[in-house]
Design a protein around this nucleic acid. Structure first.
Length: 497
RNA sequence: GGUCCUGUGGCCGAGGGGCUAGGCAGAGGUCUGCAAAACCUUGUACGGCGGUUCGAAUCCGCCCGGGACCUCCA
């Protein structure tokens, strides 16, 4: 049996994955705070953990995948002061907070679907779990790790540190943080600047607020993940994922909250994806280089030379390892676009290919196709190494193309071919979640007729050696898809997206 | 300043003490009305200086460069 290993941020080592209750396993990933359109930065963790989810399923696990939506409590800055992000944006857009949340959740879902990111098993909203959050805060207070101050509740880091280690995930100690922390206004409610809010008393103008034992208010930013992961995955669960930027303070606080409320370490394997840069530069609001996914797909951002399809983005991200930084540039994306087209071409050929009895078995091909599955699973088992899976796939495209071009004269055995075909298709579609964006136009009869009219007209022009007309007809067709002249006649495939 | 990551051929990116990564571009070729596409063949490499070792791109030290978090960001 192949063993999956993954890099655990908690131990800074690759570890063998052993779920608590096999074959069941729980995966929790920090989803977006929905106050704007999803951008490239949201795509990376979504795709990274989509791969984790897909591969766990592929490996036979029964996975419960929880990815939350944060729609309350995430403040404009992390000093536990400032405005709620959702509420501020709602005011700017003149919408009810719930209306704004709905709008951006829809947009997020649409983008994720385009990227072929599978829907999680559960997608809980922070605002839908206020009661669970209040209960958890009560637990923390009962166990003495939080205090009430002016209607707000804060986590008591100093007290917690007397019993449990704080900072073990992010590898930092609070003494350093203390000396580095700036003086921030409104921190007088806290005993120590390291303390963080579990519950905030709402100002009178605050719309999003709920009743609680302490005040009419709202939950702090970190507590929703602790409360919801516990509710759906239990006090201790297998994998928690998110972006590296969430390591501190968000995930560190999650651990403190869970341990503070029940004494148990909540997460067995912490996984973090690395960040993105654009043209070698950090993606930041002040730099105005945040590219929304919609802008990317339509090519409307000034930094973009052209639109890039969702599959190009997905493929590009999978060409790099999730724990390394990834730089976005026009040339890199255009390279990826071409590479994916090539791989997709081999995939399409293979999909339609049937085994034929070869004159002779070609040992080298036989060997490589037989080893293909192992290469792919070895790569995936090694901390979800998608770049190596992709390399393994490119390594066999030559063989596939050879079969197509030269037939099976130097072929492989039926058993080898069938199992290879099955595996290639499985890794392409199920594990990597790729799909071709070019398709046979077999859905709409009228469109097929129109395409046939164009291709037939071009063939006629070619026969009459009216190449000028033939080329202009081809140019028209190329605007809508892919046209290939094959020995058996032209084949047109419509582009979707 | 603190904590951590990283430096691979023209470019992007895996690997990680001796065993071909892969892609894009470049060069040559097949096909073709031409072109494109597709396909085939093919260089160039591990930031610098020391050390460990029979052997280092891979381990260790120092130096130089890039980045992340510590402030809103996925």
């Amino acid at each position: 049996m192949n063993r999956l290993t993954l890099y655990n941020t908690l131990t800074r080592k690759k570890e063998t994955f052993e779920p608590l209750h096999p074959p069941f396993t729980g995966l929790y990933v920090c989803g977006p705070t929905v106050y704007g359109d999803a951008h490239l930065g949201h795509a990376r963790p979504a795709i990274t953990f989509d791969i984790v989810y897909r591969y766990l399923l592929f490996s036979g696990y029964k996975v419960r995948y929880v990815r939350n939506i944060t729609d309350v409590g995430h403040l404009e800055n992390d000093a536990d002061e400032g405005e709620d992000k959702v509420e501020k944006k709602a005011r700017l857009e003149k919408l009810e907070p719930m209306e704004l949340v709905h709008k951006y959740v829809e947009s997020y879902h649409r983008n994720m679907e385009m990227l072929n990111v599978k829907t999680p098993s559960i997608e809980p909203f922070a605002s839908g779990h206020i009661i669970e959050q209040i209960e958890m805060i009560k637990n923390i207070i009962e166990r003495g790790f939080a205090y009430i101050s002016n209607g707000s509740v804060y986590f008591d880091i100093d007290k917690y540190k007397k019993h449990y280690p704080y900072g073990k995930l992010s590898g930092r100690n609070t003494e350093d943080a203390l000396t580095q922390t700036r003086e921030l206004e409104g921190q007088n409610e806290k005993k120590s600047p390291n303390d963080f809010a579990l519950w905030k008393k709402a100002a009178p103008e605050h719309i999003m607020r709920w009743t609680s034992p302490w005040s009419y208010g709202f939950p702090g930013w970190h507590i929703e993940c602790s409360a919801m992961s516990r509710k759906y995955l239990g006090e201790v669960f297998d994998i928690h994922g998110g972006g590296m930027d969430l390591l501190f303070p968000h995930h560190e606080c999650e651990i403190a909250q869970s341990v503070g409320s029940c004494g148990k370490e909540p997460v067995r394997y912490w996984m973090h994806n690395n960040m993105l840069t654009i043209n070698g530069q950090k993606m930041g609001k002040s730099l105005n280089n945040f590219i929304t996914l919609d802008a990317l797909f339509t090519g409307t951002h000034p930094l973009l030379e052209k639109p890039y399809s969702p599959m190009t983005i997905r493929f590009y991200m999978l060409q790099g390892h999730y724990r390394n930084p990834l730089d976005f540039s026009n040339s890199a994306l255009q390279d990826a676009e071409k590479a994916l087209a090539k791989l997709g071409n081999a995939f399409a050929i293979l999909q339609e290919m049937k085994w034929e009895k070869p004159d002779a078995i070609h040992d080298e091909s036989e060997k490589r196709l037989t080893g293909f599955e192992q290469e792919c699973t070895d790569a995936m088992n090694d901390d979800f190494n998608t770049p190596r899976v992709i390399a393994a796939m490119f390594n066999v495209t030559g063989i596939v193309n050879d079969f197509r071009n030269k037939g099976f004269k130097n072929g492989v055995s039926e058993k080898t071919f069938d199992s290879f075909k099955k595996n290639f298709i499985a890794f392409f579609t199920d594990v990597l979640g790729l799909k071709r964006e070019i398709t046979d136009a077999n859905g709409d009869k009228r469109i097929n007729e129109m395409i046939a009219a164009f291709t037939n007209a071009r063939e006629k022009a070619k026969q009459e050696k009216d190449y000028k007309l033939a080329d202009s007809l081809r140019n028209i067709l190329l605007q809508f898809g892919e046209l290939k002249d094959t020995p058996t006649g032209p084949v047109f495939k419509l582009r979707i997206n």
